[in-house]
Structures are given as C-alpha cells and as structure tokens.
Computed example of a mutant assay.
Amino acid sequence: MLLITTCALAGIALVQSVDDRAQVLVVARDVPLGQVVVEEDLALAQISADPAVATVAADQADAVVGQTATTPLVTGELVTMSKLDSAPLPEPGHQLVAIALRPSQLPAQGLRTGDVVQVVSTPGEGGEVPTQLPPSVAATVLRVGEPDMDGITVVDVQTPETDGAVLAARVATGRIALVVEAPGGGA
C-alpha cells in the first residue's frame, strides 16, 4: 500500500512539474561579442526553471532582436537581457582595437570582459628601462580570444576615438604590455 501511494504521489508531482514548463529563448548559434542579434540567432526551448534563473520568455523575441551582444553568446545557452544592450560596440565616440599578445604580455590571472587596462609601451627585449613613465592608453576589454597554437591571444579593447590610431600603431610594434587597473570594470 505504501509503495502504491508513493508511486501515485511521484506521478502527480511529475505531471505538475511538466505543466510548470515555460517556453523561453535560447541561443541557436554562437553570437560574438558586439554582434547584433538577429531572429536566426534565437530558438525556443521548454524548461522548468527556478524563478531565480534569468530567462526571456519566447513571446519577448522582438525585444531581443536588434540588441547587441555584450558578451559572447554560446549555442544552447539561455538568453538573458543582462548579456544584451541596445548600444552598439564599440560605443559612440570609441574605437575597437585588436591586440595580439604573447603570454608574457598578459597578467597571469588572465583578462575578462569589462577589465579596465592601461596598454603601456615597453622598450622591447634588451631595451633600456625608461627613466620616465612610458606612454600608455586606457582601454576596456571587450573580448578575450582563445590562444592560438603559438600561445598568442587576441584581445579586443575599446578606447576613446582620440586614442584608437595611437594604440593601433603601438600594438603594431609588439612592444606593449597590459596593466589591469580595475578587474571586471570595478573601481
């Protein structure tokens, strides 16, 4: 009798949990940071989620299409508004600069989207140590790529448009290092 009652209660709970499923948006294909989300980037999924889990209801797709991805969106993950913004990247008045860095030019803790950094000019290997502060450009990390076969990591940074060309010229020399000022954009 106890076994029958337990099975019946488990069956009722299962049916109720299926009824509590909601249709939400998921990422249908990878969306790189800074790319505008289009309808083909979205898919629907039925989930039963805790209310504390951030989701976007399927009927809110129009609010997502046209938004800019503020972090890379990976296929299969739940769509959340915290990873989207209506402003394009780079922000108005800013420029996007790609920096290819060797492991020795990066902090050991790594970099994250939102890190505020100084890109500092260095004298290069065997160069003299400067007696004055070397030139630097402030930037915000937008994306950190995966290291390639040679260990080179490409980091996309956003900098004021007045500094973009200067930074690109310094990056081209390869004689730079990154100094993290505010991890994750914190103060």
Rank of each mutant, 00 (worst) to 15 (best):
Q132I: 12
D150P: 01
A139M: 04
T140L: 09
V137P: 07
V137E: 03
Q158C: 12
T131D: 13
R170A: 11
G127R: 10
P160N: 06
P134W: 10
T162K: 09
E125Q: 13
T153E: 13
E125L: 08
V171W: 10
G164L: 10
E125S: 03
G124M: 08
A165M: 05
S136Y: 14
A139P: 00
L142R: 14
G145R: 00
A169P: 01
D148G: 09
E128C: 02
I152R: 01
L142N: 12
T173S: 13
A165I: 03
Q158L: 11
G126H: 06
G145F: 07
T162C: 05
T131M: 14
Q132N: 13
D163W: 05
R143M: 08
V171S: 04
Q158P: 05
E146H: 10
Q132E: 15
E128D: 05
T162W: 11
E128S: 10
P160A: 07
G174K: 00
T159Y: 04
T173W: 01
D156H: 13
P147H: 06
P135W: 01
E161W: 03
V166Y: 02
E161H: 07
Q132M: 14
V137L: 04
A165N: 06
I152Y: 02
A139N: 08
T162F: 12
A172L: 13
E161T: 12
P135R: 00
V166S: 06
P160I: 01
A139L: 08
V166W: 01
V154I: 06
P147R: 00
D148I: 06
G145A: 07
R170H: 03
G145E: 04
V120A: 08
